[in-house]
Computed example of a mutant assay.
Amino acid sequence: MIWPRTRALSVHLLTATGVVFAMFSLLAAVEGAWSGMFLWLLVALIVDGIDGPLARRWDVTLHAARFDGVLLDLIIDYLTYVFIPVYALYASGLVAGWAGWGILIVVPFASALYFCDTRMKTEDASFEGFPGTWNMVALAVFILEPNPWLTLVVSILLSIAMFLPLRFVHPMRTQQWRPLTLTVTTLWMVLALVAAWGEFGLGPLLGWVFAACSAYLLVAGLVQQALAGLSGRG
């Protein structure tokens, strides 16, 4: 039994590295090194993508039950998905002034409630409501540089959407369209790394591909939900 326990504990240790990457990301943000900040956030995102499957495969809740992996994951996710990206939007000047203050107040407040929502997940492991992936939103803002007030309006709408009965795909776990979703997610990650490494300049073609991947991840669950509703009525 020693090996299963050690293996399960190693998953908790892997998850916990996310907070170290969050600290590195925050230090980069404070110094205004926005590319470095997003690169560390993407490293944390990769860890977040692989620790869950490992935890389920190695029965972490059985062999390492002393530590609550779900709680640990949520703590780190709040830092890397919400707190640091929202700070970056304001501190970078991309969403400054009253629009920036609006995001600083609305998004962390709504996200804190969402991250403790017991109805966050659906039966097929999708998300119930917008899953609070503000790191992805922030990266899109850094690449596209939209009007600050447009960013605020979109952020308010997404904050409201966190508590609505709307379905959003989990990139790793939602079974419906899973091969396509994994492909799009992988492409999004590659483009995100290229964008962060290259000071957010993707060029027209890659910019459109990045936008298309982002749009898919945003609306795929909604389309699945609509199709299921039509099928149910049929």
Rank of each mutant, 00 (worst) to 15 (best):
C116F: 15
E123Q: 13
G129E: 00
T174E: 10
F200N: 15
V153T: 07
L157V: 08
V153F: 11
T185D: 08
M172V: 15
S92G: 04
R178P: 13
V95G: 04
L152Y: 05
L158R: 01
L193Y: 11
I84A: 04
G198N: 15
F83A: 12
A88G: 14
P131I: 03
F163R: 02
V153I: 10
L158P: 01
F142L: 05
A196T: 06
W149V: 09
W134S: 01
L180A: 13
L193N: 10
W197N: 12
V82P: 00
T174V: 10
V190M: 10
L113T: 00
I105T: 14
F127N: 06
A91K: 14
N147S: 13
A112P: 06
G198I: 11
I160Q: 13
N147A: 12
V194G: 02
H170G: 02
K121M: 09
A161Y: 03
T118I: 15
L150V: 15
F168K: 13
T122Y: 06
G97E: 07
G100I: 04
S92F: 05
A195K: 09
P85Q: 15
F142C: 13
V106L: 04
P179C: 06
M136V: 02
R167C: 10
G132T: 01
K121G: 01
T181P: 07
N135C: 06
S92W: 07
S159K: 00
G97T: 13
Y87N: 07
F130N: 01
S159P: 06
L182W: 06
S126T: 11
V95A: 05
G97M: 08
F109K: 09
M189E: 11
E123T: 13
P179V: 06
P146I: 01
L191Q: 09
V194S: 04
T133Y: 00
W134N: 04
G100K: 11
L205D: 12
